[in-house]
Design a protein around this nucleic acid. Structure first.
Length: 615
DNA sequence: GTAGGGTTAG
């Protein structure tokens, strides 16, 4: 059904009828008039509803087969709602419309950038349509087409065909096409990163775009060290990095927790006169925060002339990560006062802040306000925050009831959040039930085995526990090894639990032993029981003493002068024993130790931690 | 009318 036409269109229709009446010598063709009107209308189409109205007019006036009008409409609708795109496609494919490359290109682009997966899926299908209609692709076709394929990382086959077609039509060596190929392959992940690198290596000429695409690809693939390495290579070749390149490097620094690098990028941007756009500042805020420099992040925020909802959200997240929930809420209120309406992502930050600071009532009020004040439908992430909030506060039954009654099907993350609550508040029976269900539904996920095994350990059911372990190894499921990173003099050093691959491992292990002696001297008792060993997600085989964070801390203690801050980034959560041990280390060695966990920051100083043992 | 980029529950 067509929506009601706006008054302007209705008045035009009247005008239209009027003008079709027999007139003077050169009667203007009604089709021509309507087309002109339509083009005028479309040139003002900036909102989905405007596009929809134009569409209604098109269908009514029979212009939906006019290629010029259609092309313009597709271009206007690139940012419009998917609901608009669907009838457009139907309009195109229904009547016999003369198709040219321009039209198909526009169509591919409009669909490739749609937020709806089904629309993106269709984007790539327009290329065969082009060939069927005996239209040759032009130089604009492949960048659009490949970008559409990049949006479908689940079906790399389409992308491979696209690459083959680009070769066949002689466009594969075009700069734009090559750059997009790098991007596309790196979006596919896994071994395709090698294909991206292949394209990159074979390009005779490269630009900042080329390097940025490859750097971004490494970051996306979790190879942030390689991204940084490639950036250094880029500087050696003399290609001038631009804003986008630098944003890629910042993402790498954020991933690695490399504060020195992040600060260096800040200075580099100033020195090189790279424009400090809102996007760049947002990346800088996020990166500094993820490297543990919240105050630096806030300083960047305050220095910005223009701020978007992303800027505000980044600061809120930064504070929430440090457990500074009250401050995060203050910023959220300031954002609203500043006239920036929060979006769904901002609410995730706010709800996380409430959850981590134990502010259940506030959290509930904000959750309600999403819908009532801002018309935002909560997504699974928001429900997840609420479950976490109840769970952390010890309201496990409320959390369970919340999950039972929520309008979205709970996903594994929701169940794992509940599990964490059960573990923290000793609700072993409920935990076991959830854990078993989870494992039945998702038998390929290692985390689910670890959880059930932890429940058995907590209830001293060693037999069941070892059964689970056996099941895991039988299925070839491995735990993710614990891994800690530290940055020293611009180098990133990586430590894995119990590994001896570092060139200085002998010194490091001696230092760890010395640390253990010192800790015992002041009365720290290592929690070596198997229960606690398994409480962590860390590999069971790695003895507590050789947990990666301890190796990393020992290394930095050896290599830096007294009083220097120690910063560690860990891929998993810190285990109970390491948490207690690091508190003591901060006291004995008089060092501030900042550990970025999988979920938050811990600042150890004078024998205590900023998380107040609540994490 | 063409390429690379910022915030997201545990």
């Amino acid at each position: 059904m067509s929506p009601p036409l706006p008054p302007s269109v209705q008045s035009h229709l009247r005008l239209h009828r009027f003008s079709t009446a027999p007139a003077s010598h050169h009667p203007p063709s009604s089709a021509r008039l309507a087309e002109q009107h339509c083009l005028r209308l479309l040139s003002r189409c900036s909102t989905p509803s405007a596009v929809l109205q134009s569409l209604a007019f098109l269908l009514k006036s029979g212009l939906h087969s006019n290629p010029l009008v259609l092309t313009r409409l597709f271009a206007s609708s690139a940012s419009a709602a998917p609901a608009v795109l669907e009838p457009l496609v139907a309009a195109l494919l229904g009547p016999s419309v003369p198709i040219d490359a321009f039209l198909v290109n526009t169509l591919i682009r409009a669909h490739a950038t749609s937020p709806l997966p089904s629309a993106r899926l269709r984007a790539a299908a327009f290329f065969p349509l082009m060939l069927r209609s005996a239209v040759l692709p032009n130089k604009f076709t492949f960048p659009f087409f490949l970008k559409a394929c990049a949006a479908l990382p689940g079906s790399p086959g389409v992308g491979l065909q696209a690459h083959a077609a680009a070769l066949k039509f002689g466009f594969a060596t075009d700069q734009y096409v090559s750059n997009t190929l790098i991007h596309m392959y790196s979006c596919f992940g896994g071994g395709f990163l090698g294909d991206a690198r292949n394209v990159f290596d074979r390009m005779p000429k490269s630009s900042a775009v080329t390097w940025s695409a490859m750097i971004g690809g490494y970051v996306r693939g979790g190879l942030s060290s390689d991204a940084v390495g490639l950036f250094r290579e880029m500087q050696a070749t003399g290609v001038r990095p631009d804003e986008v390149t630098v944003i890629g490097v910042l993402a790498a620094a954020a991933d690695l927790g490399a504060l020195e690098l992040a600060r260096w990028v800040g200075r580099f941007v100033e020195r090189e006169g790279i424009g400090k756009s809102v996007t760049l500042c947002n990346a800088l805020i996020d990166t500094l925060a993820k490297c543990g420099d919240v105050d630096g992040a806030v300083a960047v925020f305050h220095g910005m002339e223009e701020r978007t909802v992303v800027s505000w959200t980044s600061v809120i997240d930064a504070l929430a990560m440090e457990g500074r929930g009250k401050e995060a809420l203050v910023v959220f209120e300031e954002m609203k006062t500043a006239g920036v309406p929060p979006d769904d992502v901002a609410f995730i930050g706010v709800l996380t802040a409430c959850s981590h600071a134990g502010m259940v009532d506030e959290g509930y009020a904000y959750f309600d306000s999403m819908k009532t004040e801002y018309g935002i439908d909560p997504k699974i992430e928001h429900y997840g925050c609420m479950v976490d909030m109840f769970g952390r506060a010890g309201m496990v039954d409320q959390a369970m009831e919340f999950v039972r009654t929520m309008p979205i099907k709970p996903n594994p993350i929701i169940w794992r959040t509940l599990m964490a609550a059960c573990r923290a508040h000793s609700r072993h029976e409920l935990g076991e039930t959830i854990s078993r269900n989870l494992l039945n539904e998702y038998p390929a996920h290692e985390a689910n085995y670890v959880m059930l095994s932890n429940v058995y350990a907590l209830t001293q059911r060693w037999k069941e526990k070892s059964d689970i372990r056996r099941e895991m190894s039988k299925r070839g499921i491995k735990k993710v090894p614990g891994c800690s990173l530290v940055e020293l003099d611009g180098e990133i050093h990586e430590f894995i639990a119990g590994d001896k691959s570092h060139p200085q491992w002998r010194d490091i292990y001696r230092m760890v032993e010395e640390m253990a002696r010192e800790l015992r001297r002041i009365g720290h008792i290592p929690t070596t029981s198997e229960v606690l060993l398994d409480l962590d997600e860390e590999d069971k085989e790695g003895a507590l003493q050789w947990h990666s964070e301890k190796l990393a801390i020992a290394f930095v203690l050896l290599r830096t002068p007294p009083g220097t801050q120690i910063r560690v980034v860990k891929n998993l959560r810190v285990c109970l024993d390491c948490h207690a041990a690091i508190k003591c280390i901060s006291q004995v060695y008089n060092r501030e130790i900042v550990v970025r966990d999988r979920s938050r920051f811990h600042r150890f100083k004078n024998g205590s931690c900023s998380c107040n043992d609540f994490w």
